[in-house]
């Protein structure tokens, strides 16, 4: 299967280790993965801030780049939610009928990583080894837009050595929300503090998730507060093996 990796702009720039992990993981599972260097951003930041025209130009780019792909894998729940929930509206409002048709044909082939593993490849046990105490933060887009359900848990549950600790108030937002975190910095910080309290209470070494944007938010607070724990994208845990353990940054 010829699969395209859409790494997303912030993973590319700030979290390359997540991208590397996706590559190692999928190659291990026998997936032929392509990375089109023409890719940039899905347009989420613009759409969520109210810049619809700009968001549409990113959206058009995305469809143009991937219309011939067999499958597009995206290790970010909010970017997939952008494509699935917001592209149709943008195309209906600003695009042509032809563009709309191309989008409709592409949409069923765009997968968030855990969806791709479970729904498309049909694997839960990816042969990973990660001997740590881990809690899972369910990003809002993964939970309520993509309806990932227990997919991430099923994948993590099969990781050898991994002890999965449940997180209280799982469905409550961490307060990131893109530009919300600076436009409403104080409110966002209050939400973050509440979330961090729940995460720290798990006593986990790592907080994982399907979206580095939330994890960047949480990780930034953990680092500021010397919380004694780190964030790690689920791809890095799933890529981790005895011989090649996960890349973890400071």
């Amino acid at each position: 299967m010829r699969v395209s990796l859409f790494i997303t702009c912030y993973n590319d720039t700030l979290f390359p280790e997540t991208g590397r992990a996706v590559v190692h993981l999928l190659e291990r599972l026998g997936v032929e993965l392509g990375f089109n260097p023409a890719q940039t951003c899905c347009g989420q930041m613009h759409a969520n801030t109210g810049f619809r025209g700009e968001a549409f130009s990113q959206a058009k780019r995305f469809v143009r780049l991937y219309r011939d792909s067999e499958a597009v894998v995206v290790p970010s729940s909010s970017c997939v939610a952008m494509v699935r929930d917001q592209y149709p509206g943008l195309f209906a409002e600003l695009g042509t009928a032809e563009q709309g048709k191309e989008l409709a044909a592409l949409l069923p082939r765009v997968y968030e990583l855990s969806e791709f593993l479970i729904d498309r490849l049909g694997v839960e046990d990816v042969g990973a080894y990660f001997p740590h105490r881990v809690t899972y933060h369910a990003s809002c887009h993964g939970l309520r837009s993509l309806h990932l359900g227990d997919r991430p848990w099923r994948l993590l549950g099969k990781v050898r050595g991994l002890e999965l600790v449940p997180l209280a108030n799982l469905d409550r937002c961490c307060g990131f929300g893109g530009t919300f975190s600076v436009k409403n910095g104080e409110v966002s910080s209050a939400m973050l503090a509440a979330k961090l309290q729940d995460i720290v209470a798990t006593g986990a070494e790592y907080c994982t998730g399907v979206d580095n944007s939330c994890l960047m938010h949480l990780g930034g607070a953990m680092h500021r507060q010397y919380a004694g724990m780190k964030t790690i994208h689920i791809a890095q845990i799933l890529a981790s093996t005895e011989t090649s353990p996960a890349e973890v940054t400071a």
Partner: peptide, 13 residues
């Protein structure tokens, strides 16, 4: 209220 991880030496691309 939060730190930000500095940019890694190499981007994914």
């Amino acid at each position: 209220t939060r730190d930000l991880r500095g940019m890694p030496p190499q981007t994914f691309r």
